[in-house]
């Protein structure tokens, strides 16, 4: 078991829920913020969603049964909060929006190069949930088993979803590069 998980369990088993919660904040805040920021784009909105996520974690910490890792459980809550935020605030139901990448690119937390921006632009063409799965697999390098627990989706469905996403993204990135090249040639 990972040291952070052990620390959380140790406090939790002692009935010290505050300490367990604080250990979750210390060990998982950054990873959850990354996940949320990639989905939401705007860093202030991401901070709000992160806070809502931790409110949910605190409210439900006593109900956690240990069926999964702590990080899997918190990822699940954060994913749902991010998706709900997209639906509620950005009114996005099934597809992503270029504004997410625009906002992410403008964020002071974003340090990616042009290739990465092109990848995010390609991700904009995916449905929000498919984008979430792709990001967990590609960026966070989570195994299918864990993504399956987070999303409540079978591994078979995830594999199909991920590879559909890869295929789509490759196509979009190629088109994006062609467009960029033609723009550069036009400028010359």
């Amino acid at each position: 078991m990972h040291a952070n998980e052990q620390l959380i369990w140790s406090a939790y088993n002692d009935g010290n829920f505050e300490k367990a919660f604080e250990a979750i904040v210390d060990s998982q805040q950054e990873q959850l913020l990354r996940l949320i920021l990639r989905m939401v784009g705007d860093q202030d909105e991401a901070m709000d969603v992160l806070q809502e996520t931790f409110i949910k974690i605190w409210k439900n910490i006593k109900k956690f049964k240990g069926d999964s890792k702590w990080s899997t459980w918190t990822y699940r809550i954060a994913s749902n909060e991010a998706l709900m935020h997209l639906r509620k605030v950005k009114r996005m139901n099934t597809t992503s929006d270029p504004i997410v990448t625009d906002q992410l690119e403008a964020s002071s937390y974003f340090d990616g190069d042009e290739a990465l921006v092109a990848l995010y632009r390609a991700l904009d063409t995916l449905p929000a949930k498919q984008r979430l799965v792709f990001q967990m697999k590609y960026f966070d390098e989570l195994p299918y088993t864990e993504i399956s627990q987070i999303t409540g989706t079978s591994e078979g469905a995830l594999k199909a979803s991920y590879h559909h996403a890869v295929k789509k993204i490759e196509k979009e990135v190629v088109q994006f590069k062609l467009l960029e090249d033609s723009n550069i040639k036009g400028e010359l």
Binding site: K56, N60, K63, F64, K65, D67, S68, W73, R76, I77, S79, N80, L83, T94, P127, K129, Q130, L132, V133, T151, G152, T153, A157, L158, A160, S161, H164
Partner: peptide, 13 residues
Amino acid sequence: PDDFEVDNLEEEI
């Protein structure tokens, strides 16, 4: 919390 799930992806694919 353990029961909470995102919508199934099966609908999309």
